[in-house]
Simulated assay, not measured.
Amino acid sequence: MPSRRVITGRSQEPRRRFAEELRLLRTEKGDSLRQLEVVLGWSASTFGKMEGGQSLGSPEVVEALDQHYGTTPMLLTLWELAVGDPSQFMEQYRRYMVLEAEAVGLWYFAVSRPPGLLQTSGYAREALAAGGLKGEELEQQVEARIGRRKVLEGPDAPPFRAILSEAVLRNSLRDPREWREQLGFLAEAANSPNITLHVLRFGKGLHALDSTAMMFLRMAEGRTVAYTENDLRGELIEESGRVESLHRTYDVVRDLALSPAESRTFILRMLEEVPCEPST
């Protein structure tokens, strides 16, 4: 653990202290901004703006830096203070992000949007903008979301199974080109050896996950945790009885869905229906 800094008049200001720590930690480790880009996956300009005080970055970026420097949770704590409202950073979501990066198996149910791990930059940008983000903050969050896809890449990537409600494939983006890219990305992902996609068609009746997006994470020690999310809140569930009950519900919904081969065919059919050029 790096030694604590002397508190100076300048570093008592949370935003400046945060930027100061980022610069000093990188200097001590001997990293360049380019090396951070290669190792952590976000652009060198992102880290440069954070160190210069022009941007605070996203919690995902800060979490990665904390792990890289071995300072967990110091940088996240400073980030919360710099943001000015610790309640904006949900503790449960922070823990979920840590667990997601360590998981050896992942299962997902998507209600109306593709899983964040399978979103293109165009989709992420429109989805986040719809939530009120704009400008630099929007671009930071888009970059952070795309960076999470590293979890599913590489020879040691964990298996990932996702059930997509048909609504996911019907709620198109405003730009047909971006929507084609998203559907094409899903079809390509379905060919990956570690990714399995199911489409749950309309007309299969009501089920217990109608309005709840859900992720299950299997950890290396054998336990499984769940994270549920709707429009109002998210909840990390670690109690084994509740997780097992939710997993049984997930299995029931999976049995109602198309097979992986049928699902990919369905996605490709949806892709064919999207016009190649935006209407004028």
Score class of each variant (00 low, 15 high):
residue 100 E to N: 12
residue 231 D to Y: 09
residue 197 L to S: 06
residue 126 E to N: 05
residue 151 V to M: 07
residue 44 A to L: 01
residue 6 V to F: 09
residue 10 R to H: 13
residue 104 V to P: 08
residue 228 T to P: 02
residue 233 R to A: 15
residue 137 E to L: 14
residue 268 L to M: 15
residue 270 M to D: 02
residue 101 A to N: 06
residue 200 L to C: 02
residue 134 K to E: 14
residue 116 G to W: 01
residue 71 T to A: 08
residue 239 E to W: 10
residue 51 E to N: 10
residue 138 L to S: 03
residue 222 G to W: 09
residue 135 G to P: 07
residue 96 Y to C: 02
residue 129 A to Q: 11
residue 269 R to V: 06
residue 119 Q to C: 05
residue 127 A to S: 14
residue 142 V to Q: 02
residue 88 Q to M: 11
residue 21 E to T: 05
residue 67 Q to T: 12
residue 1 M to I: 12
residue 147 G to A: 14
residue 251 D to C: 12
residue 201 R to P: 14
residue 263 S to G: 02
residue 36 L to G: 01
residue 25 L to S: 07
residue 118 L to E: 00
residue 73 P to R: 08
residue 214 M to L: 15
residue 33 L to F: 11
residue 143 E to G: 14
residue 47 F to I: 07
residue 59 P to V: 08
residue 140 Q to W: 08
residue 275 P to G: 06
residue 66 D to C: 07
residue 150 K to W: 04
residue 13 E to Y: 07
residue 256 L to I: 05
residue 231 D to Q: 11
residue 190 A to H: 02
residue 131 G to C: 07
residue 163 I to Y: 01
residue 20 E to A: 11
residue 123 Y to R: 02
residue 83 V to H: 05
residue 147 G to P: 03
residue 145 R to F: 03
residue 158 P to L: 06
residue 36 L to W: 00
residue 188 E to N: 14
residue 170 R to S: 08
residue 53 G to F: 07
residue 119 Q to G: 06
residue 36 L to V: 03
residue 92 Q to G: 06
residue 80 E to M: 11
residue 223 R to L: 12
residue 119 Q to M: 09
residue 93 Y to G: 03
residue 107 W to P: 00
residue 221 E to W: 13
residue 157 A to L: 11
residue 10 R to P: 00
residue 270 M to V: 11
residue 154 G to H: 03
residue 251 D to A: 15
residue 99 L to H: 06
residue 70 G to C: 03
residue 133 L to A: 07
residue 262 E to N: 10
residue 245 S to Q: 13
residue 233 R to L: 10
residue 109 F to P: 01
residue 23 R to K: 13
residue 52 G to H: 09
residue 145 R to M: 10
residue 63 E to M: 14
residue 217 L to H: 03
residue 206 L to I: 10
residue 38 V to H: 14
residue 245 S to I: 09
residue 64 A to D: 09
residue 89 F to T: 15
residue 15 R to N: 08
residue 227 Y to R: 03
residue 269 R to W: 11
residue 258 L to S: 08
residue 147 G to D: 10
residue 255 D to H: 13
residue 125 R to W: 07
residue 120 T to K: 02
residue 278 P to Q: 07
residue 62 V to C: 05
residue 85 D to C: 07
residue 89 F to P: 00
residue 27 T to E: 12
residue 271 L to K: 02
residue 190 A to E: 01
residue 90 M to R: 10
residue 24 L to H: 15
residue 167 A to P: 04
residue 86 P to M: 04
residue 14 P to S: 08
residue 181 E to I: 00
residue 232 L to W: 10
residue 94 R to M: 14
residue 231 D to M: 11
residue 243 V to G: 01
residue 22 L to D: 03
residue 238 E to A: 12
residue 186 L to K: 02
residue 151 V to C: 03
residue 120 T to G: 00
residue 268 L to I: 11
residue 59 P to M: 10
residue 170 R to V: 06
residue 118 L to Y: 05
residue 161 R to S: 13
residue 203 G to T: 04
residue 105 G to N: 13
residue 239 E to F: 11
residue 76 L to A: 04
residue 170 R to F: 08
residue 70 G to E: 06
residue 30 G to R: 01
residue 108 Y to N: 15
residue 277 E to L: 12
residue 33 L to A: 08
residue 88 Q to R: 15
residue 247 H to K: 13
